[in-house]
Amino acid sequence: MQKKYEYVADVIKQRIFDQTYPPKMLLPKQSEFAKEFDVSKITVKKALDGIAREGLIYKKSGLGTYVLGNTLINKRSDAPANAFNGLYNQQGADHVTSRAIKFSIDFPTADIQAKLGIEANEPVYNILRLRQLDGKPFILEHTYMPIKLVPDLSNEILEKSIYDYIHHVLKLQFGGAYRKIHANLPDANDIKYLNADKTTPILEVEQIVWLTNGKNIEYSTSRNLYDARSYTVVDLNDI
């Protein structure tokens, strides 16, 4: 079932796409949207924050929120570099399917211990998933999560959205993430699951995600073919 803020965001985005809200237009106030959609201003703010992360609108201190428009360098498959909602929500449940290639419980190596801030005797999920977009291989994700922070993870959850499970079932919120985006050479898994050849450049996002209490909940790498997806940043000079 679609959440209220998602519905509000979808309607506003459609108005941007069809030029009901043209580029450089000042959007209605949050209170006006709240009245129109019969939701709280917090719901409207959450919707607008998500649209801003997609680079469609921008906020000017003391002035309001303006439409940036759908920039010509954007592709539908692109993702905001600072997003926390995951592929399932970014691209839509009807377009994304996930297949667990590996799902095991392991004791962490010294490297994973350091990245997650845990001890050697604290087990982790070791997850390798192929994410497909409209039935085609899209992203290969390798994820480690401490079991004590994400209990009862299942194959059913892996086939949908781990982040939705964390946010809506476990009621945990992300505090932030450190992300490193870089080019890499293909490995055996890229060749097998992404249909790369031995010289296809790979784009990799390596990240550590932590909760609002400061505990690291995820260390992961996401890999895709160089031309399958890009990561976007909206950089505003608000001086």
Rank of each mutant, 00 (worst) to 15 (best):
Q132F: 07
T212R: 14
K192L: 14
L185P: 00
G135H: 11
R223K: 14
Y178E: 13
F174I: 08
L203Q: 07
V205S: 04
D187P: 13
H168T: 08
I147T: 09
E159H: 09
Y178T: 14
I127V: 11
H182M: 01
Q207T: 07
I157L: 14
N121D: 13
F107Q: 12
A196V: 04
A110K: 15
Q113H: 00
N216E: 03
S154P: 00
D134I: 04
P123F: 02
I202M: 06
N195I: 07
K136C: 13
E141F: 01
I202E: 11
N224P: 08
E122H: 08
L158D: 06
I112W: 02
T212G: 00
Y163H: 10
R129I: 04
H167S: 14
N189C: 08
A188F: 07
A110C: 11
V205T: 05
Y178S: 15
I181T: 08
T143F: 01
Y163K: 04
N121M: 04
I181H: 10
N121V: 08
L133E: 08
P137R: 03
K171V: 00
A188S: 13
D197Q: 09
E204D: 10
K148W: 05
Q113T: 02
E204L: 10
S104N: 13
L133D: 06
I101G: 11
Q173C: 12
T212E: 12
D197K: 04
V169N: 12
